[in-house]
Every structure is written in C-alpha cells, then in structure tokens.
Write a protein that binds this DNA or RNA. Sequence first.
DNA 1: TGGACGATCCCCT
DNA 2: GGGGATCGTCCAT
Length: 202
Amino acid sequence: MRFDKLPRSFYLRPTLAVARELLGKRLVRRYRNTRLIGIIVETEAYCAGDPASHSFRGQTLRNEVMFWKGGHLYVYFTYGMHFCANVVTGERGIGEAVLIRAVEPVTGIATMKKNRSARPRDPVSGNLTNGPAKFCQAFSIGRAQNGSDLLGDRIYLTEGDEITRSHILSSGRIGIRSGLDKQWRFYLDGNPFVSRGKAPAP
DNA sequence: TGGACGATCCCCT
DNA sequence: GGGGATCGTCCAT
C-alpha cells in the first residue's frame, strides 16, 4: 500500500510537531460502503496550560476524550449546530489535541456535496471542507465519532505526499478570545482549501 | 435552576 | 462587515 496508516507513535509526540506534520496527511473515513478521503491543509494546536483549550479548566464529561491517549478523535458540539474534530496527542491524561480546520477533498466528493447540501445554496467543491464544521458535515463526523480510535478501520490517517517545510505557514488561531499571542495555526501556503477564517492580527 | 457563551457558518446590507 | 441561528455545557446563584 502506498499510503500507510499512521502508527500510534506519530500521535505520542509534542502537539505542535503533530499539528505541523499533520499537514499533507490523508484522512480516510469509511462511510456507507464508500470511502471519503481528504488531505489535511489546515490545523490548530491546543496545548496543556493554554487558556484557549477546552482542557484548560480540567477534565469534564464533555472534554474527556481530549485526555485519552494520543491517536483518538475528540469531536465536540458548538454554537448549537456545529461539530468540530480534533486529533488527540500525547500520553493519557495530558489533555492536548489538534483541531482539523480544513482538508482538500480527494475521494468521495459527490458524497461530501450531498452531506453538505442540507444548506440551500449548492455547495461547490471549494466550499465543502474549508472550515472545521464544514469538514465535519461533509465527512459526516458527529457525536457518534467522538472517541474513535484512529488506528481502527472506520476513521484513520495515512501518510501523504511529502510537504516541503517552506510551504507551511503559521498564524494566530481563529475564533478564540485568549491565547491570541500563540502562532499555533498551521496551513499550506496558497492552498485554495484553507479556510477563509479571519486570523487575529499579529 | 438560570444564564452566559462558544475552537462556526451563512445570509443580508 | 455585521448579526442571527441554536443548544449543550459549565459555573454561579
């Protein structure tokens, strides 16, 4: 197989390294006898001691999965209507994760469009997965996927094409009110599937 | 038990 | 560029 599944050891490393190196990796979602695949093009890191992180005030029922061992999927519900998906990093009990903010659709685009077409406006491919909640909707990721093991067969990550380090940019994270000084958002320079979210001024 | 708010998105002006 | 949708979660009464 050309694109091998990422091993557990990939996730058990410093969160910022994982956030950067997730760029270019392929996310595979088995869904109704088909396969949805996207290349990760934008991530954000949420670390221990970080006031912007859900884990900052300790473990609760909601953020429990964030404290699991690296290589699990933490899915949360927000704004009364959206889901966002994170890759848990580090050892059990740490509480760190990487938010998947955008992917480039590769396989199963027709299904992604269908999943996104609950909205009246016809989604075009550039508007399918260029935001954390859009990606979850296109890939049909919701509450049932919270806690998924990324070393399983339903949702997992694989190697991708090599990404040149100089093609990776960083910025402040989007949509948060604290931790604005941290340049913990990573994305591929010039990739059209990166979200158009407004980054806080540096 | 209540209220404030959120790691967003979409539509309108 | 601004506001509304919409509800689970958490913390303060």
